[in-house]
Design a protein around this nucleic acid. Structure first.
Length: 229
DNA sequence: TTAGGGTTAG
């Protein structure tokens, strides 16, 4: 039952990779007689998280077959390591091979677009999501809100925010920050109040936007009060 | 919870 062995070995590889021990993961990986796509994907992601882009690339380029998770993991590897141009290049490669992105791929790519200010590609992916009936979940939603805001399209950013059914802290933070950096301090603070009324607990990212909005409004005391509550 | 990928900032 080789597939069963591969499953058990991959579980061990994964447990090392999860804690960042890629040396131990690698020893097991090299000793394995039967590897499957999951084994390769686990290794690539493990290297990506440690910032070892070269090792991730090497495995990605040498793996026998790739699935959508392999592609997304490699795109995210570049993105996590601030190589956003490379992330989009891999996404392009993937599309050229006729492989369709899923929700996870799209959230990752939209985030890379935000960092690069790549509004056209971001819009294209947004359209693709709408036209293909993909679920606009909190990952894609917050990535879109952030991407539009960073690309200077605050109207589109807020449109996505208000149309989004379920919003988590990431969605709220992205919208509040978008308002704050575009100088809409009053609106950012109003949105922060609405977030509190909806029982979403703020974090340090929220704090940065609220603080800058309060500063713009000359309300530094309010900022301190908000975060002591 | 049961082998693998995703969102804000820094």
């Amino acid at each position: 039952m080789p597939e069963r062995d591969a499953f058990a070995w991959t579980t061990m590889v994964s447990s090392h990779a999860r804690v960042g021990d890629m040396s131990s993961a690698r020893i097991l990986f090299d000793e394995m007689e039967e590897r499957n796509i999951t084994t390769w994907n686990t290794m690539i992601d493990g290297y990506a998280r440690l910032g070892n882009v070269e090792s991730a690339e090497l495995l990605f380029n040498h793996m026998p077959t790739r699935d959508i998770i392999s592609w997304t993991t490699m795109i995210d590897c570049y993105s996590q390591n601030k190589k956003f141009g490379e992330a989009l290049a891999v996404f392009n490669d993937m599309r050229m091979k006729g492989i369709s992105p899923d929700e996870v791929t799209m959230a990752t790519v939209i985030s890379a677009c935000a960092h690069l200010g790549a509004l056209d590609l971001g819009k294209e992916i947004h359209l693709y999501i709408l036209q293909n009936g993909f679920d606009l979940d909190v990952y894609i939603g917050s990535a879109l809100i952030d991407m539009y805001a960073k690309c200077g399209a605050l109207d589109r950013s807020l449109l996505v925010f208000f149309k989004l059914q379920d919003k988590n802290l990431f969605c709220w933070n992205s919208a509040i920050e978008g308002l704050a950096v575009h100088g809409f301090a009053k609106e950012a603070l109003a949105m922060f109040s609405k977030m509190e009324r909806e029982k979403i607990k703020p974090n340090g990212v929220t704090f940065v936007s609220v603080l800058s909005s309060c500063t713009m409004q000359g309300l530094l005391k309010k900022a301190v009060g908000d975060f002591q509550a």
